[in-house]
Design a protein around this nucleic acid. Structure first.
Lengths: 205, 205
DNA sequence: CAAACATAATGAACAGTGTTCAAAAAATCA
DNA sequence: TGATTTTTTGAACACTGTTCATTATGTTTG
């Protein structure tokens, strides 16, 4: 039936409209400062309408964090053209860090905020497929590095986690305003140099 | 004048009482879930009283985060008995991580939450002395390691930051529930193994 | 076409938050 | 004791996420 189809499409469109407004406001004024009312106002609908399409705020946050992973995942996938695994590992790290610095709010949502994980726990019985896929890209690359003689005497899983953690840690400190406050240095150059330092240590055979 | 003295002391005591209640509730039910009203109830005073002794919630959070740094700082200082700098570096990391895993709420407050930094920006013109002192302990130790031939070809500042970031990153992912969700592994053993992996790489001459 | 029905949108209302501040209570002083 | 100062109070305000009876709109049917 044509009408039902069109209806379903319209519903999807409005849902996307809400999400788009949320994304815009999050980037503009931060996630904490963005209210359901401000989202409703942005798209010129009432608060109630937002709740017709999203059962609560964590669902909006979860949908948005999926968009972030779609973008980062795409950039990761593009890097699998690089055949040298250590080069690819470095590139993955660089892209990851670039993403974090250029999309601080989104990165925060993906890797720091509790909301998306709360939503997953409450609705999808514990499967964070976005995080899994991203970690998999890293793990695969680390495995290939090990096959080439890198990371001797290490185990794949903890090593991959350690590498993720080390880059995430710098990004997280950056986003949460601890870098300049603790080191006294300009954050951006320090981040880049520190990243190189890490990679230099990681790539020692 | 004796009375004025006693008064000042009583004021300090009540302030400490508020802070103690806050600390207790934070550890019990989490920081986000602890309200000014619940703090007031805990010490059997009214909401208004809390605001006589603390100008707002960020000040409570800031005072509490100072307590955390006092504890961690004390544990750090005790480690300066270890004369071998690389051994001390590893011990610093282990203590840091132990602190994070055993005081998740406090660690979150110290290194993730925005409130304490917001308070500092608004009230103490940008000087995070707690963070500075802690980073200094790390930096000093890293310098001594470099003096002994470790970390060849690295610069002190970015390297120290990278080391901090790498341990912080794992702790942060742990606290924000990303470890098991992304890796599928049991978090605690993975953390410990990953920490060893990092230290192994750091200590390669 | 009009009436019956189904779907979508609304916004006042609720319970909760941090915060304020005139008023009440308690303590101190003369 | 009475006046004055200090401390404590909690109702009230502006905000939050969320709900749901009511209204408006669209669709189907006799």
């Amino acid at each position: 039936m044509g009408t039902a189809e069109r209806k379903a499409k319209e519903k999807e469109e409005l849902k996307a409209l809400i999400l788009g407004a949320a994304k815009k406001l999050f980037a503009e004024k931060g996630i904490e400062e963005t209210t359901i009312r401000s989202i409703a106002k942005e798209i010129e609908y009432s608060v109630g309408t937002v709740y017709v399409y999203y059962k609560d705020k964590t669902e909006i946050l979860h949908d948005l964090h999926q968009q972030g992973f779609a973008q980062l995942g795409g950039e990761f996938r593009a890097l699998f053209h690089v055949s040298d695994p250590m080069e690819r590992l470095k590139a993955l790290g660089r892209i990851y860090m670039k993403f974090a610095l250029e999309n601080t709010q989104m990165y925060d949502l993906m890797f720091n905020m509790k909301a998306p994980m709360d939503f997953i726990k409450a609705n999808e019985e514990h499967h964070w497929k976005e995080g899994n896929a991203t970690f998999d890209a890293l793990r695969k690359t680390v495995q290939e590095c090990m096959d080439q003689g890198y990371f001797n005497g290490h185990q794949l899983e903890p090593l991959s986690f350690a590498i993720w953690g080390s880059v995430h840690g710098m990004c997280s400190l950056y986003i949460r305003d601890r870098v300049k406050a603790a080191t006294g240095q300009e954050p951006d150059p320090l981040m880049n140099k520190a990243f190189e330092d890490l990679m230099l240590m990681f790539s020692k055979k």
